Computed example of a mutant assay.
Amino acid sequence: MASHVISALVARGDTVTALARADGEVVRRKVADALTTLHLNPALVEKVQVSSFSLAEPDLGISAADVFAEPCTYWHSAALITFFPRREAELHAVNVVGSANAVAAFTGHAKPGSRYVHVSTAYQHGTTEGRAFEQWPDYGHPSEFRNDYEHSKRVAEVELSQTGLAQRGDVLVARLGVMVGHSGTGRALTDLGMYDFLRVIALFARRTPGERVRFVCHPRAALHLTPVDGTVDRLLALADGPFDRPVRHLVPPTAVPVTDLFAAISAHLPVELVAVTAAEVEAEPFSRFEAIVNMRCKFTSPYLRHEYGFESHADAEPPPVTPRILDLLISWYTREGLPE
Rank of each mutant, 00 (worst) to 15 (best):
A2S: 14
H4R: 09
L9M: 11
V10R: 08
A11T: 07
V16L: 06
T17K: 10
A20I: 05
A20V: 12
R21T: 11
A22W: 07
A22I: 10
G24P: 04
R28S: 08
K30F: 03
V31I: 15
D33H: 10
A34K: 09
L35F: 13
H39T: 13
L40F: 13
P42A: 00
E46H: 15
K47V: 09
S52M: 05
S54Y: 02
A56M: 08
L60H: 01
G61V: 01
A64S: 15
A65S: 14
A69F: 00
H76A: 01
A78I: 03
F84H: 13
P85N: 03
V97F: 10
S99V: 06
N101G: 00
A102T: 07
V103L: 02
T107H: 10
G108L: 04
R115T: 08
V119D: 13
A122L: 04
H125D: 11
T127W: 03
D138F: 13
Y139F: 09
P142C: 06
Y149L: 01
Y149P: 09
V158C: 11
V158Q: 04
G164S: 12
A166C: 05
A174M: 14
V178Y: 13
V180I: 13
G181P: 01
R187Y: 10
L189Y: 10
T190R: 13
Y195V: 04
A205H: 08
R206C: 12
P209V: 11
G210F: 12
G210Y: 10
E211S: 06
R212Y: 05
R214H: 05
P219E: 02
A221C: 03
T226K: 11
T231Q: 10
L238G: 04
R245N: 09
P246F: 09
R248A: 11
L250K: 09
L250N: 03
T254I: 07
T259A: 12
L273T: 04
V274N: 11
A275S: 08
T277H: 02
A278L: 05
E280Q: 11
E282R: 10
R288G: 14
R288K: 14
V293Y: 00
V293I: 07
R296S: 14
S301Y: 02
S301M: 12
G309D: 15
F310R: 08
H313C: 04
H313M: 06
P318V: 01
V321R: 13
P323M: 03
P323L: 04
R324N: 02
L326H: 06
L329R: 05
W332T: 00
